[in-house]
Nucleic acid binder design. Structure first.
Length: 765
DNA sequence: AAAGTACGGGG
DNA sequence: GTGTACGTACTTT
């Protein structure tokens, strides 16, 4: 008998049951065995269920069939169903598929969970859990004790050996390129392998894998390019390539696909998962809040999804898995797919309920001494506090019409599935945030930040998921109730701050920007405490701005645009939203100059000082434009990045994007919706559309860039920044043309607090 | 003028 | 395997 103390590394099904990889405290990987017999459930007429039983028995499949009683959340009652227990976990998906093909119209439950998930549920386990394990001589697990909790802030992780693989000397997507050298990093050295000699390449790689036996293979474009290339080469030359640690398995590849998410198309390249070893592609990892391994490990522990999977899927899948785990624990049926229609609503109700988050247009202009106050995790907090869940909204037992505006009722008898899943997550995130504040800046704090970001991703999608028609536990009425509470809470906060004499300059879903003449920073803590107390939802001070500029719409200088502003806090920190430098489609050089301009303005503490800085910004623009005109700017810094929303041939207009996408297509680069392109504008006015822009990957320094086009883009970005000073693009151009900037009088905008008859102009030196 | 196309958020 | 909705900015036709 063997004892192993270590961390659960990977779990998957194979012919003999389950493979459980454990890494012990010395860093040694153990391939252990166990098994699980998961069940799915079928609901339907007696005759249909009988037919399913007959079919399964006749096929001699390894199943155990029985009658079971389980609760359906949406029907709100216990059902009598057929339980199909699959004795060999590897066959779970195929046996389910067979039944579903046989009787597609029946209702299925617990059918789309993986064997690993069932195993984790049954054993109270999760990925990377620390355990004490006893096995027999053949590696079968006899006893397993979990010595870890996924709710702990402090936990140890296994010592991991890491190897990374990338193509030498380039950051661009290699499907846009056609050759390269392979760079392999291990802990103590870097190998550069020439791809022109595939046999030697494979031999060396083979040796490195054997010698270092990495737990984690980190790649750049390994999913889309490097791993498929290597596997293809190994097949062509009939050579062995031990990418997997489990010698019986071939790497699991998954087709590339495009899907819509966050209102845009995302391209997921093919993925290559390994067995007994993790492969994570830096460029194919889903990282909502810019976290990396520490965030991914936290997600794996919390969601119960394996590391390689959680690294690649959206947080929606993660929150869905957490909800499924809660349901499993409570013996609630987990719907196979969502088929709930919205409850009937009259037209009038639709208008009321469909409003979403509350937004006011900001009061345009440059404002001094503005406080920004934000509700903390507003929607998740509302869901947890007010017990909002698909089964608690308009439940049959309660008629309290408590939801503001829309009058839905919420169950007071039973804790909802979503609140129950959410509450510990909200609490853990707060503990991480508080913990990070107490820690000194350093690696530990960075780990806390990443984990907190990862949980934030779960919380944000949890709200969105309630309104998503295909979510397992989604229900649009729950979504509406959340936003209705959100609006009520925000309005309440607005009234409270106004009672204290503040003006609300801007208001956006869970944030308010407020100011009062001669307000003092000491006023905010009691104000926040009062709002928190009266609304029941915690609110915090994001900061007090020395100045903040709310920008108008381009077409109407008096009409503000939500979430388009820039400002400087008391501590000197700059915050910008919606302006060019925040956008992914702005050239890096334009972003950099806009940032420099804001840096120049950020030394100002008042409106007056802001205006005083304007001539310096003009000087900056003049210098940068001179560099541009002298063709001194590196073309990489002028590259525009765009995400394609359709196939290159499907574009109807000759936009630069379409032109570039087709150029790449002609060069054999197959682009899909959701993939990005990068290009430089070479001659925007050219007759021949193809001469207008050039993909960065097909560019070199011999191609010039379109000076006037980039000058125009720069001036536009600068006009955004100087608009609050009352200066438009034309004035900027005029001033830039004069050297040096001469004393200058222009009409500055009125102060929000200014008397009716203000002085009309100011002089800046 | 109308239609087509893309971005935002988080830090 | 997959969060929605929508306002804004800009280009092409």
């Amino acid at each position: 008998m063997n004892r192993i103390n270590g961390w659960i590394f990977d779990v998957y099904a194979d012919e003999q049951g389950l493979v459980v990889w454990v890494i012990d405290t010395a860093g040694v990987a153990h391939q252990l065995r166990d098994t699980v017999a998961p069940s799915f459930f079928v609901f339907g007429s007696h005759a249909d269920l009988h037919a399913v039983c007959v079919m399964l028995s006749a096929a001699h499949l390894p199943v155990r069939l029985r009658r079971a009683e389980r609760h359906d959340l949406f029907l709100r009652r216990d059902l009598t169903l057929l339980e199909v227990q699959v004795l060999r976990p590897l066959l779970f998906a195929s046996i389910f598929a067979r039944v579903r093909t046989f009787r597609p119209a029946l209702t299925y439950y617990n059918a789309d969970l993986s064997p690993a998930q069932f195993y984790y549920f049954e054993k109270g386990l999760f990925p990377l859990a620390y355990c004490e394990i006893q096995t027999n001589a053949a590696g079968w697990i006899n006893a397993l004790e979990v010595k870890d909790s996924c709710w702990d802030l402090e936990y140890r992780l296994p010592p991991l050996r890491t190897m990374s693989v990338r193509l030498a000397g380039q950051a661009a997507n290699p499907t846009h390129e056609f050759r390269g050298e392979l760079e392999i990093h291990t802990e103590d050295r870097v190998c550069v392998l020439d791809t022109s000699d595939p046999r030697e390449l494979l031999r060396t790689l083979n040796r490195l894998l054997q010698k270092y036996d990495p737990d984690l293979l980190i790649s750049e474009y390994g999913d889309s390019f490097i791993l498929p290339q290597l596997i293809q080469l190994a097949n062509r030359y009939g050579m062995h390539l031990p990418l997997n640690r489990d010698p019986k398995q071939a790497p699991l590849s998954r087709q590339a696909y495009s899907y819509a998410s966050y209102g845009r198309i995302v391209y997921r390249s093919a993925s290559h998962l390994l067995f007994g070893r993790w492969h994570i592609d830096l460029h194919n990892a889903f990282r909502m809040g810019d976290y990396w391994l520490d965030g991914i490990f936290e997600l794996a522990r919390l969601t119960g999804l394996n590391v390689q999977k959680v690294a690649r899927t959206s947080t929606g899948t993660g929150i869905s898995a957490i909800e499924a785990a809660t349901a499993y624990r409570r013996k609630i049926l987990i719907p196979y797919y969502k088929r709930e229609a919205e409850d009937f609503k009259s037209a009038g109700e639709l208008i009321l309920t469909d409003k979403g988050g509350l937004t006011y247009r900001p009061i345009v202009g440059l404002h001094e001494n503005v406080a920004e106050i934000d509700f903390v995790s507003m929607y998740p907090f509302i869901m947890a506090k007010f017990n909002i869940s698909p089964e608690t909204i308009n439940c049959p037992c309660c008629h309290n019409s408590v939801v503001p505006d829309i009058g839905y009722s919420i169950c007071t008898h039973q804790r909802g599935l979503i609140p129950e899943s959410l509450e510990p997550l909200v609490a853990k995130r707060i503990r991480y945030k508080l913990g990070a504040k107490e820690l000194a800046a350093g690696p530990r704090q960075e780990i806390y930040r990443q984990r907190s970001q990862a949980i934030k991703g779960l919380l944000v999608t949890c709200f969105g998921y309630t309104g998503y028609k295909n979510a397992r536990f989604g229900k649009i009425e729950a979504h509406e109730a959340i936003t209705a509470y959100g609006r009520a809470v925000l309005i309440q906060a607005k009234e409270i701050v106004e009672d204290h004499g503040f003006d609300v300059l801007h208001l956006l879903i869970d944030s308010l920007w407020i100011k009062k003449r001669n307000s003092h920073d000491d006023e905010y803590p009691p104000l926040l405490a009062e709002i928190t107390e009266k609304t029941g939802v915690p609110i915090a001070l994001e900061g007090v701005y020395d100045w903040v500029a709310f920008l108008p719409a381009r077409e109407h200088e008096k009409i503000g645009v939500p979430n388009r502003y820039f400002g400087v806090f008391r501590n000197g920190a700059i915050k910008t939203r919606g302006i060019e430098l925040r956008r992914g489609d702005t050239a890096p050089w334009i972003k950099a100059v806009q940032q420099q301009a804001i840096d120049v303005l950020s030394v100002a503490h008042t409106r007056k000082e802001f205006f005083d800085q304007v001539p310096q910004v003009i000087d900056l623009i003049r210098e940068r434009l001179a560099e541009l005109r002298a063709q001194q700017v590196d073309y990489h810094d002028l590259a525009l990045t765009y995400r394609l929303t359709r196939d290159p041939q499907a574009y109807r207009h000759n936009t630069l994007n379409a032109v570039v996408a087709r150029q790449l297509s002609q060069r054999g680069v197959h682009l899909h919706p959701g993939e990005s392109i990068r290009y430089v504008i070479t001659d925007a006015q050219a007759r021949d559309p193809h001469a207008r822009a050039r993909p960065v990957d097909l560019m070199d320094a011999s191609y010039g860039y379109d000076v006037e086009k980039y000058a125009e883009l720069l001036l536009r970005a600068m006009a955004t920044i100087l608009q609050p000073a009352g200066i438009d693009q034309e004035q900027i151009e005029q001033k830039v043309a004069q050297t040096p900037t001469q004393p200058w009088v222009w009409q500055i905008p009125l102060d929000w607090f200014a008397p009716v008859n203000p002085c009309k102009s100011a002089k800046a030196d």
